[in-house]
Every structure is written in structure tokens, then in C-alpha cells.
Write a protein that binds this DNA or RNA. Structure first.
Lengths: 121, 121
DNA sequence: TTGAAAATGACAATCATTTTCATTTCTACT
DNA sequence: AGTAGAAATGAAAATGATTGTCATTTTCAA
């Protein structure tokens, strides 16, 4: 793993949740870490390839990254104000594994998001 | 609903599964239907807004559209060859509703995809 | 028929992501 | 230490899907 990949991984660790490549690049700059946007993208690519980082897509198609391996959970997002709640994903996990198994798939991953309107909106 | 929206909806019906905006535009042209790409995008937007069409993201972030079917299901997609299997989503539905309810959310929707490597790859 | 409102589409603009390529840093070997 | 070759870096250009603009066309009710 590169020096850059390590930096990116550390930032991901600190932010704790999902972040876009551009956000990560911004945070790195705030921290006086001189690193190019291109390099951030490359570091994220290799981290994803190594299975160290998960990639999901925001509704507008932008890529979001998060460190793999923390306790697995999904997100409940308010469509109006953006408020986000973490939701345990045990049931989904079982569902995904079962469906994949029944169809002969292996190396399973999944994405799941719930969205709605929160009580404050 | 517009004339264009109707055309787009018809094509979606014929192709039966997921298709990108550009693919739909191509099919429409093959059918001698003169319709601009911009209009295809707009028709898809309004169809999605009306809940007539579902939108998911391919792994590279490109948007895919499909006629909103009566029977709610999700997809099990092979990362290698693209083979897709429909999976019933009952368990997910319950999970999403429960999680949303516990946190005071309403007007709930959800997305879920499973991906892996199929038995042929 | 007519006139306002909606729809259309060619083209330009946007924006995340990838490519290119010249330069810099690392690494291994003498 | 010195050096060649490989890998990493990043600025700038390219890419490609999607959206915005705006002049023109169509629709439709009065």
C-alpha cells in the first residue's frame, strides 16, 4: 500500500462514514497534506480493489467510499433535510446471502439504503 | 403524460428490463421515432417523479431505468458478465419499514442490490 | 383563429472521474 | 554514495453522462 493510500485510509477512518473523493481531498488539504485529487482517486481505486474500502452510489450517481470492516450497517436518510440514521443490517445480510446462494452466486456484496421523511420535516 | 413520455414508456415496456437513457434513445431511433436525447432524459425524469419508472445505478454510476413493475423485487447482478436475476424483496421491505418506523420516518422508499460472481464466471 | 403555455431538440455547459504525460520519488543493485 | 529502472505523483486535458438554455414548434382552450 502506498503512502497516499495510507493517508486516504486514515482520513476515511477519521470521518467514520461515507465520503466522496472530493470531500476526502478537501479534508486532506485542510490537514496540510499536499496530495492531488488524481492521487486520491487512484488511492481509492486500489483500496476498493483490495477490499479495504466499500463503494456505494449516491442517488445522483456520485461515488461514496467508506472503510470496510467497521460494524456493517446501512443508512436511513431524510429526503428533505438529509438527516441520517445508521441502521443495523443483519436481516439484509441474511437475505442477500440466501438469494445469492440459491442462484449459485459467490463473492457476494450488497447495497441497501432506506429513504423517507424524518419526524422533524 | 406527454407524447414523448408515452413513447419512452412504450419502449421500456418492450425492452422489459433495465436500460440506460442512451440505449432507449437508440432504440427509439431504430424505430424511426424522431425524438431528441434531451427529451428522452426529460421523459425519464418525469416518469421517475410520477413513480412509473424505477431508477438504479450501474456500478460505474450510469443510470438505468425500468418500468415500475407491480411485483416488487430486487436484483442479483453478476459483477463479471452482467447476468441478472430477479429476487423477491419481502424481507427487505419489512426491514425498511421497521427501521423507518422506529426512527419516526414516513414516506418510505428503499433501494437494494446484491452483486457477486455467477456460477458461469 | 389566436394567443398563452407547454413541449421539443440542437447545442452548450457542468461536473465527477479518467487519461496523459512530464516530473519526482522510491528501490535494488554495484 | 551512485545510478538505472520502476513506480508514484499531479497538473492539465479528455471523457462521458446528465442538465441547462433558448429559440422554435405544438397543443388546446376560449
Amino acid at each position: 500500500m502506498n503512502k497516499s493510500a495510507v493517508k486516504v485510509r486514515n482520513v476515511l477512518e477519521r470521518v467514520g462514514g461515507f465520503a466522496s473523493a472530493q470531500e476526502l481531498h478537501l479534508v486532506l488539504h485542510r490537514d496540510q497534506e499536499a496530495i492531488g485529487l488524481t492521487t486520491v482517486y487512484r488511492a481509492l481505486q486500489s483500496l476498493v480493489a483490495d477490499g479495504a474500502v466499500d463503494l456505494i452510489r449516491r442517488e445522483d450517481g456520485e461515488a461514496l467510499y467508506r472503510l470496510c470492516g467497521d460494524n456493517h450497517h446501512h443508512h436511513l436518510v431524510c429526503k428533505s433535510c438529509g438527516k441520517t440514521v445508521e441502521v443495523p443490517g443483519g436481516a439484509i445480510e441474511k437475505w442477500a446471502l440466501k438469494a445469492a446462494h440459491e442462484n449459485g452466486f459467490r463473492d457476494i456484496g450488497h447495497t441497501a439504503e432506506i429513504f423517507g421523511i424524518c419526524s422533524d420535516c
